[in-house]
Simulated assay, not measured.
Amino acid sequence: MSKAIHVMAGYQGLFEGLLLKNEASVSINGNWVNSSSVTYMVGNNPAPLDDLSFVHKLIVSNSNQVVFEKCWLDRK
């Protein structure tokens, strides 16, 4: 199980990097996404857990359709 999680995280990281460098191809409902915009947000976590006091959110979208979305907690 642990190996499968690490492999999935590796593929996700690879996809994220390619997507943010405009080197990934993505289709939504069979239509290729030719352009996208990125929104990055960071804020305070109202209920910190283990000193994870910041919330980060990354959204890649095209014409009000989300292509990729990620949210994570961090200390900084």
Rank of each mutant, 00 (worst) to 15 (best):
A24H: 04
M41Y: 12
S61M: 05
M8T: 06
S61N: 06
D51Q: 09
S53N: 09
D74S: 15
S25G: 13
V26M: 01
D51V: 00
V7G: 00
L58A: 08
M41T: 12
N64I: 00
N64V: 00
V67G: 01
N29Q: 12
V33A: 14
K21D: 14
W72T: 08
V33S: 14
V7Q: 12
S37N: 11
A24E: 12
L52S: 05
W32C: 05
G30S: 02
H6I: 06
F54S: 06
L19D: 06
S35P: 00
S53P: 00
D50P: 01
I5Q: 15
V67F: 02
K76R: 11
F15G: 03
A47Q: 14
S63R: 13
N64Q: 13
T39M: 10
E16C: 03
N64A: 10
N29G: 04
Q12F: 05
Y40M: 10
R75L: 04
S25N: 14
Q65H: 11
T39Q: 15
W32I: 07
K21P: 00
V38R: 04
M8G: 05
G30I: 01
V42T: 15
V7Y: 04
M41G: 11
N45K: 01
F68H: 12
G43L: 03
P46H: 05
E16P: 00
Y40V: 11
F68N: 11
F54T: 06
H56C: 05
S37V: 01
V60R: 09
G17L: 07
V55G: 14
K57R: 11
V67M: 07
V55S: 10
S25A: 12
S36H: 08
N29D: 08
Q65F: 04
L49R: 01
R75Y: 01
V38Q: 08
S36M: 03
R75T: 11
F68R: 03
L58K: 03
L49W: 03
A24F: 05
S27Q: 06
V67E: 07
N62W: 13
S63A: 14
T39W: 05
G43I: 01
K21I: 00
S25M: 09
W32Y: 13
I5W: 08
W32P: 02
V38E: 15
N62Y: 10
S36K: 06
N31G: 11
F68I: 01
L73A: 09
K70N: 09
P46R: 02
K57H: 11
F15H: 07
G13H: 07
G10L: 04
E23N: 03
N34R: 13
V55E: 15
G17W: 05
K57P: 00
N34L: 14
S36Q: 05
V26P: 00
Q12I: 07
N45C: 08
S25E: 14
V26I: 07
V7R: 04
V7S: 11
G10K: 06
A24M: 01
N29V: 00
V33L: 11
N44P: 06
R75M: 12
S53Y: 05
S27N: 04
V60P: 03
S63V: 02
G10S: 13
G13Y: 07
G17V: 06
L19Q: 09
Q65I: 02
